[in-house]
Design a protein around this nucleic acid. Sequence first.
DNA 1: TCCGAGTCAAGAACAGTGTTCTCTGAATGG
DNA 2: CCATTCAGAGAACACTGTTCTTGACTCGGA
Lengths: 229, 229
Amino acid sequence: MSAPSLRARVRSEMTEEILAAARRRLAADGANLSLRGVARDMGIVASALYRYFPSRDDLLTALITEAYEALAAAAGEADARMPRADARGRWLAVAHAVREWALAHPSEYGLLYGTPVPGYAAPQGTRAPATAVVLLLVAIAGDAAQEHPDALPPSTPLPDALRADLRKLIDQQPGEIPEELLGRVFAGWVQLFGLVSFEVFGRTDAAIEARQEYFDHQMGMMADLAGLL
Amino acid sequence: MSAPSLRARVRSEMTEEILAAARRRLAADGANLSLRGVARDMGIVASALYRYFPSRDDLLTALITEAYEALAAAAGEADARMPRADARGRWLAVAHAVREWALAHPSEYGLLYGTPVPGYAAPQGTRAPATAVVLLLVAIAGDAAQEHPDALPPSTPLPDALRADLRKLIDQQPGEIPEELLGRVFAGWVQLFGLVSFEVFGRTDAAIEARQEYFDHQMGMMADLAGLL
DNA sequence: TCCGAGTCAAGAACAGTGTTCTCTGAATGG
DNA sequence: CCATTCAGAGAACACTGTTCTTGACTCGGA
């Protein structure tokens, strides 16, 4: 493998700089970042960007991929910081990490979980990191169930199709989890992103101000539901 | 009160036509509808629209208000179709109505519950219909609690601030509801819009295909949680 | 009946956008 | 050393929201 030529190196550096500028502009202007804007920020003419990204959508795709990875990393690190046996603590830590990352990067979060941008279809590459958080929640619940198998709450049976689909999803990851828990973990996942979306997108009523206190209470409730002690 | 002049009548008709065209274009093109596009659709020049709406944002506001009202109406009618004593049936009917309206009007739903449009702040007028659905859920749970006061599930106490805020919200509406239920109904509300958002925005993993079956199961679970029999 | 006032649509214009194409200058590699 | 490659500049095109001017039309009152 030959050493990367100077041209190749400066090219990858430039790509990195463009992404950084785009991220800054995304934070400032929201989802409608303009190519010309980021070009202006770097003292470059807009058409020059096309040497690095074939279109605005491809730039967005790169940002989305980065954002998925950053979110997954934040969740994973929060989980790793807790003792493995403390399932409830891990669950809440992951929830906190997701919430805090979303509040710190609202535009990126909007790209990931908000209205899809019109002409844009998520390419295959973004799919894997998108499932990281739910897989993490499943793993935590699985660990808890293994530790306290008697704490399993009674559960209405899952519809067959849902069970099959959830199995298909979690089979991407090693680890055992009782099927009775799947629907409950799924509910916790939905609750997590539902709460965060309401908060980030400002769609709760004015009377219900978004506060971490509520978030903790609701996620704790879902932890109970999922049988985490 | 004088009869509306011909000019006033044709003006309101024109306003209605513009909104209709904008709705069609919204359904076709997603959230980035263009004034010039709707103008083109009606054989009109773009600047003429400014006689009726002072800016694109005001047109969007009108669409958003309409959409909130349509969603609230769909939910309310679904509730009214069920016998008042069948709390669980009403709960599921409302959830179904919200889901089906959202799937039938994905762009409008995105306007209401997706990424907020960048420069846009929801005016006061849109706030009231936005709370209609959660008030409906609260009312249903309140009716159930009144009918079967013994069915109240045990509940961890709400944080004070959350309880105060939820009280403030539901005090806009008559009816009694035990405070232990508030957090659970809130969770059901979050679950409802979280599920619908995942489904409409296509953010569930490819392995978990969105199906009504899942939706029913999850919302039934939340109904159990909220003590609806 | 007529006429000033008010209203409407059209059209041009401006600033901004994504994208494509052409051109120049510089780095690259044989 | 020289031909090839490639990064950036600049012009151009089609599109957007918005503003302003201009001419035609309708309305209410004298």
